[in-house]
Design a protein around this nucleic acid. Structure first.
Length: 490
DNA sequence: ATGTCC
């Protein structure tokens, strides 16, 4: 092995290879802890020319950051804190940072299984795509599956999917197959501004734009037969993947608190290398308010995905002329990609209560963890990692090493290779749509052609490579792979 | 991500 094998120059920083797929930026200067990038050399190349490493380094300045900051294999630069970043911050002596959660609070994915197989939908893709597109609101701005009211929004913010169950938009098993039972108990709707709630009014049950989508998929590969069986997955099965977040409500809430934190905690801000990392000190009123507001946004995003899933069941019932129960359209699991959560972890300082910030990262608790829903306690938490429209997605299970390596986390997607602007220069939506249909039998329909260009398969990193790293490190283990059939988006 | 700046 040459010296060249031991370090990697990325974004002006020197990373040191600790072991396979683990690269470390040693603690230096004002860094409180080292930073780690979990990646292959190919994936490191992809982040070498943007601000990912610099932003990761900046996160190690946050008070209370514990052991090391982490960048997942799909990481790329984001607002202040990398997308694909994980920072575990002491919940007593540290801080909480909206930029380390993300603008789209509880952006995430849920997978719905069915007892249909690819044969059942082959030849009917356009019909199904159109029916879904007509039924599920997409794109920027207004229109939801249901009309919101002040009362319903407050109830959704406080009770999450429990509220949806009472209203008839959910069944009991939808709650037991969701993190926190679909309700984050720490939610404080009174900490969410009127303005944020107003934006939610006509967005209850809407996909939004950007990388959000609803995709009908078929299972193409099973890697772990026992776990796949426990998850109810089999080859050629049809499943549905829903990817969206908290829409304008989460965005407004993030903005509201960033501004307030900048104003009220400028002393802490002055210690940080980037304004975008603005954080409220643990124990402050504002930290408690932000946490309560963020948890309310988490509940809203779960309700959003629930309403879309409910509508999807209705569309399938209509198109296939069978009840959704006959088609066994069960929620496999719902995973959050953008959240902070109070969790207790074993750290170098012993058992510690932390705000685990996962931004573009997925919780990946292993078998036996008490916070994994009973249905999956013996197999580990399902982890759903969407890829691109041309590459498909993965289902993993939380890995044995996740608690010791990544505060119980793994990657969340393929990760962008280029900006949206660059994507629109490289691709034209109509061509992407035609190629996907003609070459891969993938049917795409979107409110905007520009969105298809921005989300072209070529703008994403290799999802296989991202998942390979997760599996090799034992933080999230491969269970199954899916491939798109129908995709609707903003 | 986002009524792509209140």
């Amino acid at each position: 092995m040459s010296d060249d094998d031991e370090t990697f120059e990325a974004g002006g920083y020197t990373l040191h290879r600790r072991r396979e797929f683990v690269w470390e930026l040693p603690k230096q200067g004002d860094m409180r802890v080292p930073a780690r990038v979990l990646a292959s050399r190919d994936l490191l190349e992809a982040i070498s020319d943007d601000r990912t490493i610099e932003q990761l380094r900046n996160t190690t300045h946050l008070p209370g950051v514990t052991d090391y900051a982490i960048c997942m294999p799909d990481g790329h630069q984001g607002y202040g804190f990398p997308v694909g970043g994980v920072a575990a911050i002491d919940a007593e002596s540290g801080c909480i940072s909206p930029g380390a959660v993300g603008y789209d609070v509880n952006c995430g994915v849920r997978m719905l299984t069915t007892n249909l197989t690819y044969d059942d939908i082959e030849g009917r893709e356009e019909e199904l795509t159109n029916a879904l597109f007509d039924a599920v609101p997409t794109g920027l701005g207004g229109g939801g599956v249901i009309n919101g009211s002040r009362e319903s929004i407050d109830a959704a913010l406080e009770y999450g999917v429990e509220w949806a169950l009472e209203e008839g938009w959910a069944v009991e098993s939808d709650l037991t197959h969701c993190e926190d039972g679909g309700r984050r108990l720490d939610a404080d709707p009174s900490a969410v501004s009127k303005r944020a709630k107003d934006r939610a009014m006509n967005q209850m049950g809407s996909l939004g734009s950007g990388n959000h989508f609803l995709e009908v998929q078929r299972v193409t590969d099973i890697f772990d037969a026992d776990t796949a069986a426990a998850y109810g997955l089999s080859e050629e099965q049809v499943v549905v993947l829903i990817h969206c977040g908290s829409r304008g409500l989460g965005h407004q809430t993030c903005n509201d608190y960033l501004r307030r934190i900048e104003e009220e905690h400028d002393d802490l801000l002055a210690q940080l290398p980037d304004r975008e990392l603005a954080a409220a000190p643990a124990g402050s009123d504002l930290a408690a308010e932000y946490y309560g507001a963020m948890c309310a946004c988490i509940n809203f995003a779960w309700v959003n995905r629930q309403l879309i899933m409910h509508r999807t069941r209705e569309v399938f019932a209509d198109v296939f002329d069978r009840s959704w129960r006959e088609m066994e359209m069960e929620l496999l699991y719902d995973v959050a990609h953008n959240i902070a959560k109070r969790e207790v972890h074993e750290t170098s300082a012993g058992e510690t209560e932390l705000f685990v910030h996962r931004k573009g990262a997925t919780r990946a608790f292993p078998a036996g963890h008490p916070e994994v829903p009973a249905a999956y306690r013996d197999t580990g938490q399902p982890v759903i990692i969407p890829g691109s429209m041309g590459a498909g997605s993965y289902v993993l299970s939380g890995g044995e090493q996740s608690l010791s390596e990544t505060f119980g986390s793994t990657a969340h997607g393929a990760g962008r290779l280029m900006s949206r602007t660059q994507a629109k220069d490289e691709f034209w939506g109509g061509d992407v749509q035609d190629d996907l249909r003609d070459q891969q039998k993938v049917y795409v329909k979107a409110s905007s052609g520009a969105t298809i260009a921005e989300e072209a398969p070529g703008v994403y990193k290799d999802i296989d490579e991202v998942v390979r790293i997760s599996d090799a490190l034992g933080i999230g283990d491969k269970v199954a792979r899916t491939f798109p059939v129908c995709n609707i988006k903003g």
